[in-house]
Simulated assay, not measured.
Amino acid sequence: MKKVLITGAAGFLGSHLCDRFIKEGFHVIGMDNLITGDLKNIEHLFKLEQFEFYHHDVTKFVHVPGELDYILHFASPASPIDYLKIPIQTLKVGALGTHNLLGLAKEKKARILIASTSEVYGDPLVHPQTEEYYGNVNTIGPRGVYDEAKRFQESITMAYHRFHGLETRIVRIFNTYGPRMRLNDGRVIPAFMGQALRGEDLTVFGDGSQTRSFCYVDDEIEGIFRLLMSDYVLPVNIGNPHEITIKDFAEEIIKLTGTTQKIIYKPLPQDDPLVRQPDITKAKEILGWEPKVERAEGMQKTFDYFKTLSKEELEKTEHRDFTSRNKK
């Protein structure tokens, strides 16, 4: 039985990766410091012999006994609320955490996949974004702690590949959604759905003309798995290329949830990308991958999940208002 270490295992994507690798017959070691993760996302796995969990911060030395075949590094805050609240930890997990896990992969002779992000493109001047685009990032802006952590992560990963011959993979993840998203993480979909479920008006930042492209979690996990098992070492975009404006998306949410709220507008946060759309040509050609789940189907599954949350979970939702922190 092959063994895989998944960091950020109690998070949104990490927990779905644990499920996928269990299904594929792996022995899965989950690791998380639970700053943004939640054990309830993986509690269904604790009864399984092929799953074990380490409560550990990867910015500290990482030790895993025995052989290890694969490492997937998904430990990082991934939402604006999180990385604006804990900016130093965000930088440390991208730098120190990645360094520790690359060292572990070198020691174990394991293949390692690093979770990067579309945020490496910043507020892009090229549309859609190809992997060859270097990005437009404000290094000292409030979002820079996340953007630059991920850019450094890619650089050190390629350095380990070139200098040590380490087997590395880099996935650039675009907006992903589905069950187990945190309702209070500040991202567009949980923010809108949380407001709808609480009977609040939906908050759109800017005039709503900015775009995003949303990929359902099952499709995202499939792309990540295929990339890990491929022979391709350079970054690959994994996301849904079907673009929608935030205003149109808010109207979709109102229709889906059957609510009567209206859309209200607030100032656009500093450095918030105006467009976001992946070019997935490489994923199609190299991995034979493209998303399959239509947005209407995926959004219904996501809304059904959020409806199961308790009243307490709904009420503790943190509002997605960054304007006071992001003034120039």
Rank of each mutant, 00 (worst) to 15 (best):
residue 1 M to A: 06
residue 2 K to V: 02
residue 3 K to H: 09
residue 5 L to G: 05
residue 5 L to S: 02
residue 8 G to E: 08
residue 17 L to G: 07
residue 22 I to V: 06
residue 22 I to T: 12
residue 30 G to K: 13
residue 36 T to D: 07
residue 37 G to Y: 11
residue 38 D to G: 10
residue 39 L to Y: 08
residue 40 K to I: 03
residue 41 N to M: 06
residue 42 I to Q: 06
residue 43 E to W: 07
residue 44 H to V: 04
residue 46 F to A: 09
residue 47 K to R: 03
residue 50 Q to L: 11
residue 52 E to T: 15
residue 55 H to E: 14
residue 56 H to G: 03
residue 61 F to W: 05
residue 63 H to Y: 12
residue 63 H to I: 07
residue 64 V to P: 14
residue 66 G to F: 06
residue 70 Y to A: 01
residue 70 Y to G: 03
residue 71 I to K: 03
residue 81 I to F: 03
residue 82 D to S: 11
residue 84 L to D: 00
residue 85 K to Y: 05
residue 85 K to F: 05
residue 88 I to G: 00
residue 92 K to H: 06
residue 94 G to D: 07
residue 96 L to H: 04
residue 97 G to Q: 00
residue 101 L to Q: 02
residue 104 L to K: 02
residue 106 K to C: 00
residue 106 K to E: 08
residue 115 A to G: 15
residue 116 S to M: 07
residue 121 Y to L: 03
residue 121 Y to A: 09
residue 123 D to M: 04
residue 124 P to L: 01
residue 128 P to E: 05
residue 131 E to D: 12
residue 133 Y to F: 13
residue 135 G to A: 13
residue 138 N to D: 15
residue 138 N to S: 12
residue 143 R to V: 00
residue 143 R to C: 02
residue 147 D to I: 00
residue 149 A to K: 02
residue 149 A to H: 01
residue 150 K to Y: 11
residue 152 F to K: 02
residue 152 F to S: 05
residue 154 E to A: 11
residue 155 S to G: 15
residue 157 T to I: 11
residue 157 T to M: 09
residue 160 Y to W: 04
residue 162 R to I: 06
residue 168 T to N: 02
residue 172 R to T: 05
residue 176 T to Y: 04
residue 177 Y to W: 01
residue 177 Y to S: 09
residue 179 P to N: 12
residue 179 P to G: 14
residue 181 M to P: 01
residue 182 R to H: 10
residue 183 L to M: 06
residue 184 N to Q: 10
residue 190 P to T: 14
residue 190 P to G: 12
residue 192 F to G: 04
residue 195 Q to W: 02
residue 196 A to K: 09
residue 198 R to Y: 09
residue 201 D to C: 08
residue 202 L to D: 03
residue 204 V to D: 02
residue 213 S to A: 15
residue 215 C to R: 00
residue 216 Y to W: 05
residue 222 E to G: 03
residue 222 E to D: 10
residue 222 E to K: 06
residue 223 G to S: 11
residue 223 G to I: 09
residue 223 G to K: 13
residue 224 I to P: 00
residue 226 R to M: 05
residue 235 P to W: 01
residue 235 P to L: 01
residue 236 V to I: 15
residue 238 I to S: 03
residue 240 N to E: 13
residue 242 H to S: 01
residue 247 K to L: 14
residue 248 D to L: 08
residue 252 E to K: 13
residue 257 T to M: 04
residue 259 T to N: 07
residue 259 T to R: 13
residue 259 T to Y: 00
residue 260 T to Q: 15
residue 261 Q to W: 00
residue 263 I to V: 15
residue 266 K to V: 02
residue 267 P to V: 04
residue 268 L to K: 10
residue 272 D to M: 12
residue 273 P to R: 11
residue 275 V to K: 08
residue 275 V to C: 11
residue 276 R to A: 04
residue 277 Q to S: 10
residue 278 P to Y: 03
residue 279 D to P: 00
residue 281 T to Q: 09
residue 281 T to S: 04
residue 281 T to F: 01
residue 286 I to W: 14
residue 286 I to K: 14
residue 287 L to T: 07
residue 287 L to A: 02
residue 287 L to V: 00
residue 292 K to D: 09
residue 293 V to E: 08
residue 299 M to C: 07
residue 299 M to E: 09
residue 306 F to L: 13
residue 308 T to D: 07
residue 309 L to P: 10
residue 310 S to A: 10
residue 312 E to L: 15
residue 313 E to N: 06
residue 313 E to L: 09
residue 316 K to E: 12
residue 321 D to Q: 04
residue 322 F to G: 03
